[in-house]
Nucleic acid binder design. Structure first.
Lengths: 196, 196
DNA sequence: ATGAATATGTAATGAGCGCTACATAATACG
DNA sequence: CGTATTATGTAGCGCTCATTACATATTCAT
């Protein structure tokens, strides 16, 4: 096993910034999808050659998993929006509003990378990883609701995740942030009624 | 231009049923997606060779367009459910319920073929066709609502289409018809309030 | 029968895919 | 210094993809 203490090894130093490369790859995957982005496109965007790519990331699927985790870690701050003790209806309404804002923020990276990657296209292993991350987010919502409204937790979590998937699909077709926000806002009274 | 009067031409008769082949291709595309289904898989499933395939359908993209139109024509009877004169809130609620039922009816062909194909993956022309069909359905919903509630038509149509996309995404991950139906049913009071 | 028209089977084409051998360059340790 | 270690550049691997030449088979019209 390679120890991979990257900071200062013995050999030739790496000629490119790995973190910046992850960001570039994330943008490419987000804009065009996993299947449509080839290794050649990534190496060309990074100004490197295939061997450097494989030495750093192992494989295209491996890079994509890193990108997925990087995205889901900092894209939407679930921990902040769904803070324990907060009125659940209000928190979930803001979650949908934040999603609508985020999904249409950059016209090059519309929608949610995780939700849009959770399809059975191309590599099944990568799609399974995205589906696992989506399920984890759903469980996070479910647990947040269950603290105050145990009986409604599953149903509410399914509804919120479904609406987020719908917002992501709309964003991918070019719907504006205002248009998505208007749709997201419709769920607020519904959530308030369910979580009275 | 080839006249294409297929019924009785002069040459050698076709050795397979074109309509049945369209159905087989529809099932393959629906289960695995456009990119994941190669021409080889289709010809093998049909028991024919590539030249017969191209003589009958022109290209993979051309076949997919035919499949998309075939699906959107008979998958969900919009004209019946959204019959003019029907109470709009009730009709739209049934539309969502019917979608939930349809999307999880066959475990091999989950979700909506049109909505799931409306992503920018692989061939951009095919994705554009699916997006056009999705937009057409949205406009159909919009026109139905506008007959009685002109001011709410756009917003309601966006909401309904977004929820259908969310239901389709859930179906693709194996959610049962009951689970999808429970989510769909939540929108009924919301629609009733909007279209009072 | 003869020829025009259409479909089929065999086999291959060029392009792109993810990925890798191999030699070379650049660094750290002894 | 020499040597081990790591990264890079060049070039190409085997594979799958959608698509097609080409000759052959089967039908209709004359």
């Amino acid at each position: 096993m390679t120890a991979k203490i990257n900071s200062k090894g013995r050999g030739r130093p790496r000629g490119f910034d790995v973190d910046a490369a992850l960001g570039t790859a994330q943008a490419l995957f987000h804009e065009h999808g996993y299947d449509a982005v080839g290794v050649a496109a990534i190496t060309e965007a990074l100004g490197i050659n295939p061997p450097s790519f494989y030495a750093a990331f192992g494989s295209k699927a491996g890079l994509f998993e890193q990108v997925l985790e990087r995205y889901s870690a900092c894209a939407l701050p679930l921990e902040d929006i769904l803070a324990p003790g907060r009125p659940p209806a209000e928190a979930l309404a803001e979650l949908l509003a934040a999603a609508a804002r985020l999904y249409a923020a950059d016209p090059h990276t519309t929608g949610c990378l995780v939700l849009e990657s959770a399809r059975a296209s191309g590599d099944p292993h990568s799609a399974a990883k995205a589906q696992a991350l989506k399920a984890a987010s759903r469980d996070y919502v479910r647990a947040f609701v269950a603290r105050t409204h145990a009986g409604m937790a599953d149903l509410v979590a399914d509804y919120v995740v479904s609406m987020m998937s719908g917002l992501s699909a709309g964003a991918r077709e070019g719907w504006s942030a205002e248009r998505l926000g208007a749709v997201a806002r419709l769920s607020a009274p519904l959530l308030a009624a369910m979580l009275a």
